[in-house]
Nucleic acid binder design. Structure first.
Length: 559
RNA sequence: UGUCCUGUGGUGUAAUUGGCAACAUGUCUGAUUCUGGUUCAGAAGAGUUUAGGUUCGAUUCCUAACAGGACAACCA
């Protein structure tokens, strides 16, 4: 094998993570002359941001070393897995921006796995055990004490192979017997105390149908699948560390290509949960609408929320790869999202919490068009025309009858700029019987058309607005974090993560939007000026976009 | 309890493999700005879990302790 296609990353200021250092040493020592990774999801749920880290890592490693990366579905448990999940997983990996070199299923290897199991049996390295689940467990005892051998352990290979074949043929009911590797009942590592390789399951498998009555366990299937595919570096999360001796035992005793398993710390994000079980619970108990509810930390949820794929990749990059447990601040994800969106989102004006501003010296039925810049960060984004008239919607936060110190928006006597339009000076307001402001009044300066005064006069603030008679009233969903505390998993006594659901994680309002927003289409990104980033939801009817708030703008004033 | 893994600013990740701790984010200032956004400039913030040891010198090597985590499924 020529090794000239190995691509060692050029010396750059970028430091290497510990996995890359291991790979470098393997390449140097000649243990491997290539890099081949895989992303091995179990199709029993939707992918989440934690998987995104693993996807970026595995595909990233392959790319960096000019190697390959497979997508392999770890579908060894037919009772939990469904095609729906297979489809969503493929879509999510693609959307994240990765193409796998080959697509496999662990179930593709069932026959090979079976043959190897027979080989181990014949060599006296595996046996059929008829103990109950409880007996197996109690016979394993505890780590400090030796395990107890059951009467099945010393059966002859002939008996074992016959029993195993009958297991395969479906002659026994579920749970009556299992195939166990004969390793070491006294190992301090409980995984080595004769682990189960096969269990009987008369279940319909999403790919092999009813062909099999026995299914391999993770520990027996995973490493062998890696080996079959020629994987060199099998990257997984920390909890599999104790499984590594077992992974290596099977490979060695079958006598096949040996990949190196390397474990890293999974991603944890503050204010969110990552467990598939809990995520499923949120969906099943209707705390969210679906797996792709924009509040979900799933890849599909984030996509619907408006997080760009490049932001997620950047995030995965920034959190790094190490072995120590970590909790990433949610703010870092938001930073990555804003940084990406700032460059690509077109600006629009929309008023979320409207109050009317009447420009008293502007002619009653006049309308003029002012020009708005679509994206100050991108010259190619062009401009658009926005209608201006006497009655405008402005944000109620942008007016205070009695301003607090530091406030320089609209208050009686103060002049501000209406973005892209005119200077307007506040002359007062009208209140209802309860003292609530219902209308704000102002006078504009015709000479300031376009947003600048010829006399060089300055204003301290610019506010956004929407012409009342031209406003498009569009449904807008204001999303916030799903949980109220940083670590919803660490519930205090007597509580569960559900007790920390944020009741205000979704507020649906009608926003007063500039007309151009009515033409927004799913897939586009917008910044509502001074407010945040928004995307049209996929469930929007034609010509009537419903907006999802992706993230707010950073608020340096923060009342 | 046993085995294994991990301890570096608030958070995360580094430190040329022994040379007085860097980057990002966050926070706080100030400047710029037709978004209280962006951008720019600056500041504060860890002496590397602790105690010993080796060394001229330790985040890095050794020992012990302490703390946190994983495992003890016919789940993956």
């Amino acid at each position: 094998m020529a090794a000239e296609n190995i691509n060692r990353p050029e010396e750059s200021k970028e430091t290497k993570n510990f996995i890359e250092e291991i790979i470098d040493s393997h390449l140097e020592s000649g243990r491997y002359n290539r890099v081949h990774t895989r992303f091995p999801p179990e199709p029993n749920g939707y992918l989440h941001i934690g998987h995104a880290k693993s996807i970026c890592l595995n595909f990233g490693l392959a790319k960096k070393y000019n190697g390959l990366c497979n997508l392999r579905f770890d579908d060894t448990n037919p009772t939990k897995e469904e095609v729906e999940y297979v489809d969503s997983i493929k879509e999510d990996v693609n959307w994240l921006g990765f193409q796998w070199d080959a697509e496999y299923f662990a179930s593709d290897y069932f026959q090979q796995l079976y043959d190897w199991a027979e080989k181990l049996i014949l060599e006296g390295k595996a046996y059929v055990c008829e103990c109950s689940q409880e007996t197996i467990s109690t016979n394993r005892t505890t780590p400090t004490r030796p395990g107890i051998a059951c009467e099945h352990r010393d059966r002859t290979p002939e008996t074992n192979i016959e029993l195993f074949r009958r297991m395969k043929n479906g002659e026994f009911p579920d749970g009556t017997m299992v195939l166990r590797a004969k390793i070491d009942l006294n190992s301090p590592n409980m995984h080595m105390r004769d682990p189960i390789m096969y269990r009987i399951l008369h279940a319909h498998h999403h790919r092999t149908g009813n062909q099999w009555n026995i299914y391999p366990m993770y520990d027996y299937a995973h490493g062998e699948s890696d080996s079959i595919e020629g994987i060199t570096h099998s990257v997984c999360t920390l909890e599999f560390e104790v499984h590594r001796p077992l992974y290596e035992w099977f490979i060695q005793n079958i006598g096949i290509h040996a990949p190196q398993q390397i474990e890293f710390a999974r991603l944890n994000l503050s204010y969110t949960i990552m467990s598939k079980r809990k995520l499923l619970q949120l969906v099943n108990e209707k705390h969210v609408s679906s797996w792709d509810d924009p509040r979900m930390p799933t890849i599909s949820g984030m996509r619907r929320r408006g997080f760009p794929a490049d932001a997620i990749r950047d995030f995965a990059d920034r959190v790094g790869v190490a072995k120590r447990e970590n909790v990433i601040e949610y703010g870092l994800l938001e930073f990555c999202v804003r940084e990406s969106l700032n460059k690509k989102a077109e600006r629009r004006m929309a008023v979320l919490n409207p109050i009317k501003l009447i420009v008293t010296n502007y002619p009653e039925n006049q309308v003029d068009m002012v020009t708005g810049v679509n994206n100050p960060e991108d010259e190619n984004a062009g401009t658009r025309e926005i209608p201006f008239s006497r009655e405008l919607w402005i944000e109620s936060d942008d007016f205070m009858e009695e301003p607090i110190k530091g406030y320089h928006r609209l208050f009686p006597g103060n002049e501000v700029r209406l973005r892209y339009a005119y200077f307007v000076k506040c002359t007062g307001c009208k209140k209802d019987e309860n003292g609530n402001v219902v209308e704000v009044y102002g006078e504009y300066d015709p000479a300031s058309r376009g947003g600048n005064s010829p006399d060089g006069r300055k204003v301290k603030s610019t506010i956004h607005w929407v012409s009342a008679k031209h406003a498009a009233e569009l449904e807008t969903r204001l999303y916030d974090r799903l949980f109220t505390i940083p670590a919803p998993d660490d519930a205090e006594e007597g509580k569960t993560f559900l007790d920390y659901l944020n009741p205000d994680s979704l507020k649906t309002i009608t926003a007063m939007c500039e007309p151009a927003l009515a033409e927004a289409r799913p897939g586009q990104f917008f910044q509502f000026e001074r407010i945040g980033y928004f995307v049209p939801d996929k469930d929007s009817p034609e010509g009537q976009p419903r907006f999802n708030r992706t993230v707010t703008l950073k608020d340096g004033w923060a009342k």
